[in-house]
Design a binder for these strands. Structure first.
Lengths: 243, 243
DNA sequence: GACAACAGGATTGTTAACAATTTTGCATGC
DNA sequence: GCATGCAAAATTGTTAACAATCCTGTTGTC
């Protein structure tokens, strides 16, 4: 997961491994849309950019491809993933299936200390929101879900959900509605309330509602069947072979 | 997933890609325990065995490591995973969390055709069992769960569960009780009954019960804290520096 | 006899060069 | 003008050699 703050320090002690560093950098670039969906990733160029050999770039590609963040085509190369609408819907559906269970488990194992931990995170979310730091808000929003996964105490779930959240971030970056209406942070408040209610069914229901809400805020219509509509992009009406 | 029958033919048309072939072969070997947990995997040896370069073996290692089937230690090499008891328990817990949701979704979307599809698979399971084909039974048992995941229509869930099932197979291979009591196939019958009941809660409960049962049939005690008990293995009492 | 230092061998990590494939640009013909 | 075919450039796929690291067995010292 991309870090909300102090990006660049890894493992604390300054002993950073180049492998993970490159993965992180490319990850951040993809989620920031500095690398746009569909963009070709040339091995040699990246190798020179990062000052490493092509072999390492290749290994990094395998990792990113495994996380579905890039697309590896034999003999053609690597491309930043362009999740389709169907894929986007599937990711949200998968998250619902898993995070319903997470919510149930967290609700059942709730303690005062854990509630405070969640509350603390919510404060940071609100803070970022009031600062107007949109990017930090998105990242913290993802980390909220990751925190819940961690509270289940199940590393398997945590790791898988981390990947799904990354994919979600890419999907949001790609399909985000132009006028950002991320009222998401208030929904997290509701979620905390449901999680502390003690009723796992309520918690699961609230989680489902929240994930559906995120999905529904996206522009997951289908205005891209076939070829790009350049006419609307450039604000013109198509002319047939203008003189 | 390892194939239950006709192992060796891939993609039907004879156009087999060496990359996937090697992954499959190593996968089968690990699940068969021809490659035992903890065993060192030397790149050069494997490269010669498969007649490919070390680079390809390395790439295959990354895949297997990502699926947690081998362990990659920097500067030391690759080792067949030795899932700890804690990890085993976590995997089952994770599967419960996910497959509860799967069971719910399948129960809600059940049709006669799908029920027949499941029934058909169960017949194959029973058949393998009556033939006494233990290996096929284990594989088919895993594919039963994969079939349910496929019936959710969610590729994300399907792929993740496929990996978890592979891990489970390794865990079973490692912790299986000596006297195989895989009465598992009757449990799958129960599961089908629950899935066709129309009540998602019943389906989820039955799935939980089933997964717990598999786990509880394993020998997940803790008789391995520290070093191996050679004395019991060789049926002797330890002597202090025998003359 | 136990322990530390050291050397040799084995194995992984990395780099660079070469081969195969795809893409691109251009010329040719209709 | 447009499509087809060809050749060159760019890019990926593969191999082999070299460097760095780790393991093992030995030697020397206390």
């Amino acid at each position: 997961m991309a870090k909300a703050e102090e990006t660049g320090t890894y493992k604390g002690s300054g002993k950073l491994r180049p492998e993970e560093m490159i993965y992180q950098e490319m990850l951040d670039a993809i989620l920031d849309r500095r690398l746009e969906p569909g963009m070709k990733l040339v091995e040699e160029d990246l190798a020179q950019t990062f000052g490493v050999s092509r072999a390492r770039i290749r290994a990094t590609f395998l990792q990113l491809a495994h996380d579905k963040l890039i697309n590896l085509v034999p003999n053609r190369g690597a491309f930043v993933s362009e999740p389709t609408i169907d894929e986007a819907i599937e990711v949200f559906s998968a998250r619902r299936m898993i995070e319903d269970g997470v919510a149930r488990k967290v609700a059942l194992g709730m303690t005062d200390e854990r509630a405070a931990q969640i509350k603390n995170h919510l404060d940071r979310e609100h803070d970022a929101h009031h600062r107007g730091d949109h990017r930090a808000a998105i990242i913290l929003s993802g980390e909220f879900h990751l925190l819940l996964a961690r509270l289940t105490g199940n590393l398997v779930i945590e790791e898988f959900l981390e990947r799904l959240i990354l994919r979600t971030s890419l999907i949001i970056a790609m399909y985000e509605s132009p006028h950002p209406v991320d009222c998401s942070h208030t929904e997290h408040d509701e979620l905390l309330k449901a999680l502390t209610s003690g009723d796992p069914d309520i918690a699961a229901a609230e989680m489902s509602r929240h994930l559906d809400a995120i999905r529904d805020r996206l522009q997951l219509q289908r205005p891209k069947p076939g070829k790009t509509d350049f006419a609307s992009i450039f604000g013109r009406t198509p002319k047939s072979a203008a003189s």
